[in-house]
Simulated assay, not measured.
Amino acid sequence: MNYELFENEYAKFWVNNQILFFEYKPDLVIDLKAAQQIVKDRITFQNEVTYPIFCDIRGVVYFNKASRDYLAKSGSILTKAVGILVHQKVSKAISSFYLEISKPTVPTKLFEDKSKALQFLSNYI
């Protein structure tokens, strides 16, 4: 697949300025099945090209443990770095916990400011 914009039931993603933008849809609960579909679709969309990824998780209500573990490892396939955009204290607390416990395999940071996340990711283009 080679689309300018790809969308599934969980998220939409596109590439701009050599960064893959990944935006979760609102009010989602992500379980292992959802995480596996998301990663599968993203990898297919990328067509073997590795990108830094801007990941907007503000729409997610909850990631269960199995999905967090899966995304920490398999979610890093074909990624150079990940900047995660959060906006709520709960999102930030869950994401911070995820980063500490799950140990993503590529440089991964949390941001409340989109421009700071993009600045971080520009180091990996």
Results as ranks from 00 to 15, higher is better:
2 N>E: 13
3 Y>Q: 10
3 Y>P: 01
4 E>A: 14
4 E>L: 15
6 F>E: 03
7 E>V: 12
7 E>T: 11
11 A>Y: 05
12 K>T: 07
14 W>G: 00
14 W>F: 15
14 W>V: 00
16 N>V: 07
17 N>Y: 07
17 N>A: 11
17 N>R: 11
17 N>Q: 13
18 Q>F: 04
19 I>F: 03
21 F>R: 14
22 F>P: 01
25 K>W: 06
30 I>H: 06
31 D>S: 06
32 L>K: 11
33 K>V: 13
34 A>H: 03
34 A>I: 03
38 I>S: 10
38 I>E: 12
39 V>E: 14
39 V>T: 14
41 D>P: 11
41 D>V: 07
42 R>W: 04
43 I>V: 15
43 I>C: 09
43 I>H: 04
44 T>C: 08
44 T>W: 09
48 E>T: 07
48 E>A: 09
49 V>W: 08
50 T>M: 03
51 Y>A: 06
52 P>G: 04
52 P>D: 04
53 I>G: 04
53 I>K: 03
53 I>S: 06
55 C>K: 10
55 C>W: 04
56 D>N: 15
57 I>H: 00
57 I>F: 01
59 G>C: 06
60 V>P: 03
60 V>K: 01
65 K>Q: 11
65 K>G: 09
66 A>L: 12
70 Y>R: 10
71 L>E: 08
71 L>C: 11
71 L>I: 15
72 A>N: 07
72 A>Y: 05
73 K>T: 15
73 K>S: 14
76 S>D: 07
79 T>A: 13
79 T>L: 10
79 T>Y: 00
80 K>W: 01
80 K>E: 11
80 K>S: 13
81 A>I: 01
81 A>V: 05
81 A>Y: 03
83 G>F: 03
83 G>S: 05
84 I>N: 06
84 I>W: 06
86 V>M: 06
87 H>L: 10
88 Q>P: 00
91 S>A: 12
92 K>F: 13
93 A>K: 10
93 A>E: 09
95 S>F: 01
97 F>L: 15
99 L>P: 10
100 E>K: 12
101 I>G: 00
102 S>W: 00
103 K>Q: 14
103 K>V: 08
104 P>M: 05
104 P>C: 08
105 T>F: 00
106 V>Y: 09
107 P>L: 03
107 P>R: 05
108 T>G: 11
108 T>E: 09
108 T>I: 08
108 T>H: 03
110 L>N: 10
110 L>F: 04
112 E>N: 14
112 E>W: 10
112 E>M: 13
113 D>L: 09
114 K>C: 02
114 K>F: 00
116 K>L: 14
118 L>A: 00
119 Q>T: 10
119 Q>D: 13
122 S>F: 02
124 Y>R: 00
